[in-house]
Every structure is written in C-alpha cells, then in structure tokens.
Design a protein around this nucleic acid. Structure first.
Length: 290
DNA sequence: CACTTGACCTGTCCGC
DNA sequence: TGCGGACAGGTCAAGT
C-alpha cells in the first residue's frame, strides 16, 4: 500500500485517536506479523500509554510510556484501523468509511485499549510487521542509519536531491527513485506521477539526467506528495486510513493506472510498461528515452 | 559496492 | 464455472 503520503495520513489519524490511551491487551495470530510478541507485548506494551505517533519514511513509530516504541511497517497491504467501543458496522455508513466488522480474516494483530476501543493491524499479504524496540534505540536501528532524507522537509533542496543520486548513476531513474536509501518515502504511484510531471522517461539512466531535469523531478516529488497527503493518500487497492476510510488521490492521478486513457497534457494514450520489475505508466510522447 | 531478479504472501482478475 | 498465470502502494536476500 502505503507510500509516504499514505503512511503520513495514517500517522495523523492515529495521533488524534490513540495518544493518551492505555493498552489493556493484545492478541496476535501470526508470528510473522509480530515476531517476539509473546514475550514483548506483556512486558512493554500492556499497561503502557501511547505518548506520540511518529513517522520516518514509510515506517510508523508508536511511542509508549514504557519507553518502548512500537514500530509498524505496512508494506503493500497493511492497515491500522481504530475502532471506538460504540461503533456500529454495516449499512448506513458513508461509502468511503468502514463497512464491515473487524477483526476479519486479514487481521494479524488486535490491540485493545482500557476504554474498550481497539486498533486492528490488518494485512492481507503478511508482508507488514510490528516490532517493539526501546525508544532510545530507535535512532540506531539499521533502517534509520540507511534511509534517505525526508523529501518534504522545508530545508531539503533541489541540490540535496540531485546529490543523493550520485551513487545510482548506472540505474534507471525510476529504480533510483524507489530506493529508500536515496530519498525516503517514494513508491510506485508517486514515482510514476512525478516522472510524468517532469516529462522524464523512467528507464533513462541517472547519469543521463540533466540538472534542470533533476530540479523538475524534485519539484514534482514534493508537489505530488504534498497533494497526496492533502487528499488522504491513494486507495488504488486496499489502502485505508486510521478510520477505515479510503484516500482520494487516485481521482487526481495523471498517469498511474490510467493506461488507455489520454495524457492530461497532450492527449496521447497513456501506456503501461515494466520498469525495475514494477508496472509503470507513461505518456509515450512526452516521456522520451533519448 | 552497485545493480537486477526472485521471493515473501493472499486475493483478484483475465483469458482459455 | 474452473483453472492457470499475471499482477498488486514494498522491501530483502540472493545472484551477477
């Protein structure tokens, strides 16, 4: 699922819903989704209050009064959905909100709070994971050491952006954009959207990209992801926010999943190709290889 | 090291 | 309607 805008949307939702709540218990049915849960949950999670919800790249960090942090990676199909004690499921809900009862067959972990509210970690494909780590150790985990800068930070410049790609000179620009150690948070949707915005073919080698093109890609990455956050992310498939609602960015997408439809700028039919092992959408007229 | 490809999973959709 | 294969918001461990 989730790229930076989706994870940030979940973070904002959770921050308003679970900060201050005390964990009463947790159940988990998949050791793959929460390794070590048997030992760690009892010692570091149960009885702890949620003090903050943070994000770095696509990783969520739920900070606890036990001085432990619950790390959550949603990977492709992970969801974190909060359900209040008095919620009713079924007919009568708005079309974009939670319409079925949880837990369901994709629920991997359920956290229960003292007031009876619940947080469901659903993950159809079981790629996502949770892990409890001492909060002071979080900055030292491998992920934090390797991950690239946050592209939406105010002090992150076009020059900073271009420099990050030096290491990936011989790969395609799309593969480099997807590399989380270059720049954090870009995934398949926003890579395609940004490259279309910059009129750069995704297969072009990083070494062939001109300075002016890097600047354009940088601007597109920032503009597109900021818009996506504003729209609550993209629900291309299974993504929902912390209230179970879908995101609206797909209504604004210019190329992603729009193969066969006209390019919004020139009318040429958008095509789908394969780049870096991922489905990739381009305008064949405006995004040239040469 | 830098780079590519398959593997990890479950579910859905499309063609025969 | 059934069945096989391709594919899906992401990383990893293996290869070269």
């Amino acid at each position: 699922m989730p790229e930076l805008p989706e994870v940030e949307t979940v973070r904002r939702g959770l921050a308003g819903l679970i900060v201050g709540r005390v964990v009463r218990g947790a159940v988990h049915d998949t050791s793959k989704s929460f390794p070590n849960a048997d030992e760690d949950v009892k010692r570091f999670l149960v009885g702890a209050a949620v003090t903050d919800v943070k994000r770095r790249a696509k990783l969520l960090m739920i900070e606890l009064s036990s001085n432990y942090t619950l790390l959550v990676h949603l990977k492709m199909t992970g969801q974190l959905v909060f359900v209040a004690p008095d919620v009713r499921f079924g007919a009568g809900h708005p079309s974009d909100s939670l319409v079925h009862e949880l837990p369901d067959k994709s629920t991997r972990v359920t956290l229960e709070f003292a007031d009876g509210s619940q947080l469901f970690f659903n993950d159809q494909r079981k790629f996502g994971w949770m892990k409890l780590v001492p909060s002071v150790e979080v900055p030292n985990i491998d992920f934090m050491k390797k991950v690239g800068p946050e592209p939406l930070e105010a002090d992150f410049t076009a020059a900073d952006f271009e420099k990050r790609f030096a290491r990936r000179a011989r790969s395609s620009i799309k593969a480099a954009l997807l590399d989380q150690t270059v720049v954090a948070g870009i995934g398949n949707i926003y890579a395609d959207e940004s490259l279309w915005g910059a009129k750069v073919h995704p297969v072009r080698l990083v070494s062939s990209i001109k300075k002016s093109e890097f600047k354009k890609i940088y601007e597109e990455v920032r503009t597109v992801m900021a818009l996506a956050i504003e729209k609550g992310g993209s629900s291309n498939y299974t993504y929902v926010n912390a209230k179970g609602e879908k995101g609206k960015y797909m209504d604004f997408a210019r190329v992603f999943r729009r193969e066969g439809l006209p390019c919004p700028r020139c009318g040429t039919t958008i095509i789908k190709i394969r780049v870096a092992g991922r489905g990739t959408h381009i305008c064949p007229k405006e995004q040239k290889l040469a």
